[in-house]
Every structure is written in C-alpha cells, then in structure tokens.
Design a protein around this nucleic acid. Structure first.
Lengths: 219, 219
DNA sequence: TCATTTTGTAATCATTCGATTACATCATTC
DNA sequence: GAATGATGTAATCGAATGATTACAAAATGA
C-alpha cells in the first residue's frame, strides 16, 4: 500500500538535487534513515549512507539533526509512534461492534495490523535495532521505555493478561520481525526457510516478501 | 552454575598479564569476545574492548584471529555449537524412558535447557547479534545458516511440526533472549518490566537475573 | 535590483579503530 | 648459556567517519 518515497523511483539516489523546503527534506531524510538504521543498526550505519539514500550530501544530514544519535532517536520515536497509533486504531475500530464472541478476535486483528507494518520495512526493524542497542545509556533507555509502553497499552487499553501479551509479543511481533529481517533473502533457496516462513506468515507471506523486495514465484 | 572466567574475579581486567599458552589464551579471548559482541553487536564492539575484557593487549587479539570478522565468526560458530549440543543432549536423555504421555514433555525440557544457557550470557546474545547483522554478506549467511540448522534439528531429530517449532522459537528462544538482554536492568524499577519478566521466566527468573548481574531482592 | 534568508555542497578536521610493525621478555633446548 | 621459539606489548599507520567550516546558489522580499 503505502510506500516510503513517492516520486523518484524506488528509494535511493537522485541524480540532480533540487531545492526542497526543509520540512519536506526532513521527512525524506527520516524515511531514508529508517531504512538504513533498520538494516544496519545504529553503529553499523553511517550518516553518509543515510545521506546517499536520501539523495543529499552528508553534511546536510548532520546539520539538520545535530548528531547521528539525535537522528536515530527521532527515527525510533517515530517508529514507536506509528506502531502505537496503528494499534490504537485497531482497538478503536474493534470496540463499537460486538459483545460476546468475536468473528475476528481482537488479538488476531492486532497481529494482522502488525504484519501490515512490515510493508514500511524500516519501522519494525528500527525498533528492533534500538532494543538490541540496549547497552547505550541513551538509546537503551528510550528503547526499553518504548517496549514497555507497548506492553502497557496492550494491558491497560486492550485489557490483555500478561500471559496473552507475552504470547502476542513473542509470536506476533518479535518472531515475525526477526524472520522478516533476513529470511526472505533465502526464500525458495532453502527448503527449511521456505517451510518456516510459510508456516509463520500464512496469508501475509506475500506482504512480507514484497516488502523485502525479493523476487519470487507465487505458489 | 558454570561461569565464564574461573580465576581473577568476576570477569574483566587483570593487573599483571602473565604468560599463558596460546591455546588457553585463545579460549579467554573467545569468552571475552562472546560477552562483548553479545552486548554491543558486531559493529558496535571494538577489538580493544575485547582485549581489555580478556586482560590483554589489542594487537594480540588481532594477530591471533587475523581480523575482527574472523573472531566474531568463531564466537558465533561456538555459540551455535554449544546450543546444538545442549539441545541434542536434552534429546538424548529424553529418548530411553517413556512411550505414551510425558511427565515432563520434551519441548518443556528443551525450553528449560535453553533458559539455562542464559547463564553463560554471551552465547544467546551473540547468536542474536549475528542474526541481526544479516545485511553483512559473510556474517549474514552464517547466521541464517545457523538459524535454519536449529530449525532442521527440531524438525528432523526432535520430530516437531513446523507449527510447534514456530511456537518454540518464538516463545522459548527469541522472546526470552530479547527480554534477557536488557529488561533485567530495569527490573524492580518499572512495574511493567517486572510483571512481564515474572510472567515470562517464572521459575527461571532468578537464573536470568543472576546471569545479568543485577542486584535484586528476592520476592 | 539588491539585500537577506534558505537550501545545499566541497573541503577538511579530529577521532576512532582495525591492522601492522618492530621490538621486548620469558621459556625451552641443544 | 647462547640460540631459538613462543608470548606479549608499545608505537604507529591508514582508512573510515561524525562533525565543522566556509562558501555557493537559489529563492524571497523590500
């Protein structure tokens, strides 16, 4: 559905850099940074890689965000915000209808909403990268805070039990994200990978594969 | 039970470096590297940090393993080997006894064996770090290969279905590892973190907290 | 039109880090 | 007890990288 960059092709470099309002350029950089950080992690990514992905020079990136750390923190904050918003929307549109049994239980719809986020690629990966950079005092604190923010929302707003949340986080989020990171690269190249991914994503498999940019033949 | 370094206190620096056979020194470096890489990731860790953790000079580390990449690859290979061995031992000691229903089902024992590995700290974290460094052509390939190796073992040797494996990997491994990475740092400091961890680890909670070196008051 | 602001880059600096070199010190063996 | 090899480090190099500076050029507005 919603792709990150609209004009100028798939994602990467522009040949001639046009003058664009700072606010818009800021969005472009954040979108590029989301992909690059999600892919390579905080310390693995360089400001120059972000700049190239945004079709802009490296000093511009640094000057607009002050430091690489600031840029990463804003990427993570936005990713978290997007995730929370998506979940809250799913909660809201679930409320009015029913009481009793669900044709489509809430947790299933939350899971589907989460998998849809893979379409944007950088969002979930950046969150994961932030969490795994937990040793850093600043980034780590933000990451843990965000993780628990999700937990509290699922508990207090969705009304789930700790056990249910645990299951949802493990099966619906972490597992899917980690699989979506790299296993698509060897899809149809390794029978075990294909088997596991088909089992994990089921109907949403095409979304995952499409988002990862892998070419594959529909079964 | 088994700690990484035996003599010279908890883990880190030695004041006077003694002459030690290369083979033994190699083990010390690998143990230190496992902790450092697990904590900070491949690109986040430096050879000097590994050297200091091993109580040795940085050039020695580089010369013994050639490159930082080689060192990391060997850390990951050993971690994977340890994990596979642990699982196979659990499988073996399960076989002879029963046929019919299990007092302690195999998957529960595998899960317990996995959580016990947290005691060593670096093992599971290094594997996780390797998998998240999937963009690197060499490291990524090894990580995916290792991940699928585990999958195949659970399928072919333990006889689990893809669905069962999916559940085991998500709940038993990924989730526990990610929680064990950083949430212990804020255990008893955040009610949500404490609640989630108590739910996730149950009887093994003390193992996780002990392994992370967090001081906490027993409930 | 010309001054000012906004948008952008080239050049470069300072630091970090993996790697190399050259050398020291201890152990072993003939 | 020199010769030889094994174990270890200090010094340093070169490349990578985040950050800074100084400048260019396009827009904006008087």
């Amino acid at each position: 559905m919603s792709r990150v960059s609209e004009d100028s092709g798939t994602a990467a470099k522009e040949t001639t850099t046009e003058r664009i309002p700072a606010a818009l350029r800021r969005e472009q950089i954040l979108a590029a940074a989301s992909r690059v950080f999600g892919e390579r992690g905080y310390s693995g990514a360089t400001t120059d890689q972000v700049a190239q992905a945004a079709g802009i020079s490296q000093p511009y990136v640094v000057r607009m965000f002050g430091t690489k750390e600031n840029l990463f923190l804003e990427v993570v904050a936005r990713a978290l915000d997007k995730l929370m918003t998506t979940f809250r929307e799913t909660l809201a549109e679930h409320r009015p209808a029913d009481d009793g049994d669900d044709a489509d239980p809430l947790i299933t719809r939350l899971g589907a909403a989460y998998v849809d986020l893979i379409d944007d690629r950088g969002i979930l990966l950046s969150l994961m990268q932030a969490f795994i950079t937990g040793h850093d005092p600043v980034i780590g604190a933000k990451a843990r805070e965000g993780f628990l923010q999700i937990y509290r929302m699922l508990r207090d707003e969705a009304g789930f039990s700790p056990e249910t949340i645990r299951d949802f986080l493990a099966n619906g989020m972490l597992f899917n994200t980690l699989l979506a990171i790299r296993l698509p690269d060897i899809f149809e190249d390794d029978e075990a990978a294909e088997e596991l991914m088909r089992c994990a994503f089921r109907g949403k498999l095409d979304v995952v594969l499409d988002a990862s940019g892998v070419t594959w033949t529909r079964s």
